[in-house]
Amino acid sequence: MRRDKSEMEDDLRTEYDLKSLRVRKLGPGRKGFGGVTVRLEPDVAEIFPCADAVNEALRFLIRVTRDNQVASTAQVNNSNAADD
């Protein structure tokens, strides 16, 4: 059954700010509100007690990876300078 357009019009006041409302849909098709959701495999999830622990571990891994890349680049540059 289709509704007429006139039945669907709302009589909301203009001062209502509907953009600030957080409407939640249920089910797998719902969208989150700000941020990215990442699903961990069960074996990985059992290691971490909460989301903060996962973020801390990932930040540590990022720092180590960046530090190793900087060290590798410096080592290659020193090796090239010694060859000159």
Results as ranks from 00 to 15, higher is better:
2 R>K: 14
65 T>D: 12
10 D>H: 05
14 T>N: 10
59 R>D: 08
67 D>R: 03
13 R>W: 00
38 V>P: 07
18 L>E: 05
80 N>F: 01
58 L>Y: 10
66 R>M: 09
33 F>Q: 08
5 K>I: 02
8 M>I: 02
7 E>M: 13
81 A>V: 01
6 S>M: 08
69 Q>E: 14
28 P>M: 02
84 D>A: 03
60 F>A: 15
67 D>V: 01
43 D>W: 04
34 G>Y: 11
80 N>A: 09
71 A>W: 00
35 G>I: 03
48 F>T: 03
10 D>P: 04
30 R>C: 07
23 V>M: 13
71 A>C: 02
29 G>Y: 05
21 L>P: 10
46 E>N: 08
6 S>N: 12
70 V>R: 15
60 F>I: 01
65 T>M: 08
53 A>N: 05
54 V>H: 04
4 D>A: 09
76 V>C: 03
3 R>I: 03
43 D>V: 03
76 V>T: 08
33 F>Y: 13
67 D>H: 06
61 L>E: 14
48 F>L: 06
64 V>S: 14
24 R>L: 12
69 Q>P: 00
34 G>Q: 12
40 L>Y: 04
75 Q>W: 07
39 R>N: 12
33 F>R: 10
1 M>Q: 11
5 K>D: 09
3 R>L: 11
49 P>A: 06
50 C>R: 02
32 G>N: 13
72 S>R: 11
50 C>V: 00
22 R>S: 12
31 K>V: 00
71 A>G: 01
18 L>S: 06
80 N>D: 11
59 R>A: 06
15 E>C: 04
43 D>E: 12
59 R>L: 06
41 E>D: 12
3 R>N: 05
41 E>P: 11
67 D>S: 10
83 D>E: 09
54 V>D: 14
6 S>A: 14
52 D>E: 13
58 L>I: 11
73 T>H: 09
34 G>I: 00
77 N>C: 04
14 T>S: 12
24 R>V: 05
8 M>W: 00
31 K>C: 04
11 D>F: 06
60 F>R: 15
58 L>F: 12
4 D>N: 07
18 L>A: 08
8 M>E: 14
65 T>R: 14
84 D>V: 02
68 N>R: 09
2 R>P: 11
5 K>N: 08
9 E>P: 00
35 G>L: 02
52 D>V: 01
